[in-house]
Design a protein around this nucleic acid. Sequence first.
DNA 1: CCGAACATACATACTGGTCGGTATGTTGGA
DNA 2: TCCAACATACCGACCAGTATGTATGTTCGG
Lengths: 220, 220
Amino acid sequence: MLDAKKRASKAAARDPARTRESLLQAAFEEMHKSGFRGSDLETVLRKVGVTKGAMYHHFDNKEALGHAVVDEVIAPIMREKWQAPLRDAENPIDALIDIVEGTSLEPEHVRCGCPLNNMAQEMSPLDEGFRKRTAKLFADWHVAVATALREGKGRGMVRKDVDPDETATFLIAAYEGYISLAKCFQSASSLKAGGKTLARYLESLRPQSEDRASRGRRAG
Amino acid sequence: MLDAKKRASKAAARDPARTRESLLQAAFEEMHKSGFRGSDLETVLRKVGVTKGAMYHHFDNKEALGHAVVDEVIAPIMREKWQAPLRDAENPIDALIDIVEGTSLEPEHVRCGCPLNNMAQEMSPLDEGFRKRTAKLFADWHVAVATALREGKGRGMVRKDVDPDETATFLIAAYEGYISLAKCFQSASSLKAGGKTLARYLESLRPQSEDRASRGRRAG
DNA sequence: CCGAACATACATACTGGTCGGTATGTTGGA
DNA sequence: TCCAACATACCGACCAGTATGTATGTTCGG
């Protein structure tokens, strides 16, 4: 009875959790396209179909909404794309190649770039709240990659001379750099080429890769 | 007589070229710190010591000022830091290492990041004028690095199996990525570490690097 | 050589749109 | 019946852009 009433009455009768989630998602998309300062709250509200009363009920102000977007939208995206596959994978190099080459090449995504890096670059110098949050996400990302490489070394799937921390930072930096360049050039093909370059770099981290390729074998 | 009069009369009596240059420089600094949209024109004017009449005499609007900043301030910075040393150098790897490790570690610079990348990331999705200009600067940068590597190969200073275009893009992407991370972390030391990683990568592009390091020498 | 006429190079004061934020009213549900 | 969960209407600051005034060089006829 109650369920039926809820379903039948209107589209969504008083579902605050859902309202909040819709606001976050719409705000994320707006901020991803136009940046934090460039995003218009009324555009967000129109997309969701609520008014300012709703949004200022759930969030103190625009800044708080932005912080929540980082914490509750961008962070899960990163965890889903990087942390989860790396945790489940036995071979980190295979997983990393899959992730890197699995990066979306859709024009919209290429045009907009990486939401985490966008937010970090725009807001880090201006708002300490944004800076700390985005820095935390970068740090978590780094830990995930470095840990996977370290454990992969233990399983003999990564060269012994690889420094997990340094390599993780290198990978993240290059990956973000490629996305940034592709965003500016509006070029999916250049992003794809960058992914392939990174994949080759990752291949070079496997044990005995160069021996197998050119000459015999030798222990180092 | 004329010169003396000009010098003696006031601080700066009607020097439009100088006024324009001052506006560009101040606008660059503002935009470097606060981004294009975050920068306040009146702050720029206060810094220069002129009023809106002056600025709207030299520039049609804020957008035109921004475009001029890219063309006449950022472009020369890039040329001075990358193109010029690479053109003069005999060994591109030496030059590239010098450039990368010569990147400023001053807190202000670390905080603000790369002016070219900042502008590109903020404005590329929003303004085609900015996008084309910044893309051109990235392209010129790429050409400079790739050309230097190609010619270095001809002189036997770069490994034969190095792809100049791919390597140039890789270097630029990783370099910008490190600067972006350092900006978010507000960490000069991490930027320095990134520079060292890149320097080691560049060392690996020299012919017979691994032979020289571990054992004797051998032609290959 | 001179000064009227004109263009350049600014200064001052104001406008207007945008947009974040608020004050207040209304409705639904436990 | 009380409070959360919204809607509506409005405010006000910020800031790019404009309208207009003014002073400084420059040109050119006499």
